[in-house]
Design a protein around this nucleic acid. Structure first.
Lengths: 162, 162
DNA sequence: GGTGAAAACATCTTCAA
DNA sequence: TTGAAGATGTTTTCACC
């Protein structure tokens, strides 16, 4: 079951990363294949876990989520339970979209997408600051958005494809 | 054309954020409506820009992208052209999935998703370090992943819905 | 690995209520 | 707005290469 990807799988993933609502038929046309093998390949890619899910990407600004903020967090201690407790709590916050334990002068980097600065202050006061494991934090408030994509660069695969 | 969202739109967005391949029919069943109004609402949400796109989310680890790295960047100068040149170049790198100009002790935060540390070093040497506007950088290498989602928290809308 | 045809299912229009 | 119905297109299976 641990199959390698070939060039066709690669192209399918590339296309689905940009538009997952394309029909199997159209996808097959773009690959010069019939629907059947494309359909089966997609099912295989889903089943084997290369594709996690299919989602709608919403327009943050349009919805009213105008602020993105990164928070660098340093914990008070670094025992296993400190790390686990912190992660469990921070992951439970709906406003948090990403959280990574990192090397460097922070223990964690946390990304928040939230309505505005007022909502952020409320979030810090009513949620974040209640996590007792936190030592100190540094906020990086996004003042301009550059790139923000879910598209992963698969070009590194090109050489290793069967 | 600038219509507000109501509770049904809100629920549709919630569902599509988690699974955009659900059929209109099933979505309508979950909302206790017929297909027609649900279909029309989705088209409206797309047309008015609440929904940006529909994408497949790939499994980074499975694909072979094992490293996530955040880079805090300080530029040499802060004129308009410095900022624009930096953004233009960094946005063009396929390995970069996010980039924000931020307040705080960095000018920019950049997120990289890449195969491994070796590939990261190559990236820095052959791409990042060629951006002449960069003063200095600090890398935060993710050593453990917490949350990583495209799901936005819409609960803040609940009170303002028509 | 692949094709092409056919059945099952979903979409999208139209229309009357 | 709804719901039903029909034309069209898509998904999925199957027999075969």
């Amino acid at each position: 079951m641990k199959s390698k990807l070939d060039k066709i799988d690669f192209k399918i993933l590339e296309i689905l990363q940009n538009d997952c609502r394309i029909t199997t038929k159209k996808l097959a046309e773009r690959l010069n294949l019939s629907s059947t093998p494309v359909f089966e390949r997609i099912k295989k890619l889903e089943k084997e876990g290369f594709i996690d899910k299919y989602v709608a990407i919403l327009n943050e600004r349009k919805i009213g989520l105008k602020q993105t903020i990164f928070i660098g967090v340093k914990l008070k201690g670094h025992t296993r339970s400190y790390l686990q407790n912190f992660l469990k709590q921070v992951n439970s916050f709906e406003e948090v979209t990403e959280c990574y334990q990192v090397s460097g002068n922070f223990d964690f980097l946390v990304k928040i997408v939230i309505a505005d600065i007022d909502a952020y202050e409320t979030f810090v006061q009513t949620k974040l600051s209640l996590i007792s494991e936190i030592g100190n934090v540094h906020s990086y408030i996004a003042i301009k958005k550059g790139k923000n994509t879910t598209h992963l660069d698969l070009s590194f695969l090109k050489d290793s494809l069967e």
